[in-house]
Amino acid sequence: MADRLMTPQGRDLAYNKSNGTGPGIVFLGGFKSDMDGTKALHLETWAKAQGRAFLRFDYSGHGQSSGAFEDGCIGDWLADAAAAVEGLTEGPQVLVGSSMGGWIALLLARAIPERVAGLVTIAAAPDFTENGFWEGFSDADRATILNRGRIELPSDYGDEPYVITRRLIEDGREHLVLNHPLPLPFPVRFLQGAADADVPVDWAMRLLEHAEGDDLRLILVKGADHRFSTPECLGLIEASIEDVLHRARR
């Protein structure tokens, strides 16, 4: 049974927390995913074996948390993540962000850098509402969103379609990171599958080129897709977290 956190905005978030040494690890899930996914559960088990503090949670409208998915937006989920980090962890944390969670991790690094010891992103998708959805929409799709306030897109990860709202698009524009300076003054590892059909490799290259920091690395894995959940990929995530933790202590 998940524990509950009430955010300052009145949203009821589900979370699971394991106590241990710091810096702790916070897993930030992807768009319409939940904290019971393969990567989150694997890393929780791994962190417990290491005696390392670990936190996973569901954004509002996701998983076991309150709210409807289509009512949410990047700003809401960023606020949820900030509430979880600030309310459930102590000291700097290593943020592990998957897909949209990578965007959320970058926004947290910008908003509360003192609480970030390092980053590991997996198929990070910063600015995807603009560079993915909006740029990929036809004129008819854009008209539908502007006039009706929403559009439904087929999903490759379940039977239910993705509902993309006008609010999601417009709020996303208030949280872009690739058109502003992006200082990352701590160890960062960007992991990216070369066979990812959802987040193109050139997005990862653009992020690497745009971010500013002395210890940034992009690791490309040939054949890996967006799920990045094979035993080899999971092992690489573990190794990247260990690398970041080692360098964060220096």
Rank of each mutant, 00 (worst) to 15 (best):
A2D: 14
T7A: 09
P8L: 02
P8W: 03
G10V: 03
G10E: 03
D12C: 06
L13I: 09
Y15V: 08
N19A: 15
T21E: 15
P23H: 08
I25F: 05
I25E: 01
V26I: 15
F27W: 11
F31N: 04
S33G: 02
S33N: 05
A40T: 07
E44S: 04
W46V: 08
A49W: 00
L55Q: 03
F57L: 09
Y59C: 03
Y59I: 12
S60C: 06
G61N: 07
D71P: 08
L78Y: 08
V85C: 00
G91P: 01
Q93P: 01
V94K: 06
W103H: 13
A105V: 06
L107A: 09
A109N: 14
A117I: 04
A117E: 06
T121N: 08
A124W: 05
P126K: 11
D127S: 10
G132V: 09
F137D: 01
F137Q: 00
T144S: 10
L146T: 10
I151M: 11
L153A: 02
L153I: 12
P154C: 15
P154Y: 05
Y157L: 14
G158I: 07
I164Q: 05
E170H: 07
E174I: 04
H175A: 13
L176Q: 14
N179H: 06
P185N: 06
L191R: 02
D196T: 06
D198E: 15
V199D: 01
P200Q: 11
D202I: 12
D202G: 04
H210S: 01
H210D: 04
L218K: 00
G223P: 02
P231I: 12
L236H: 03
I237M: 08
A239C: 10
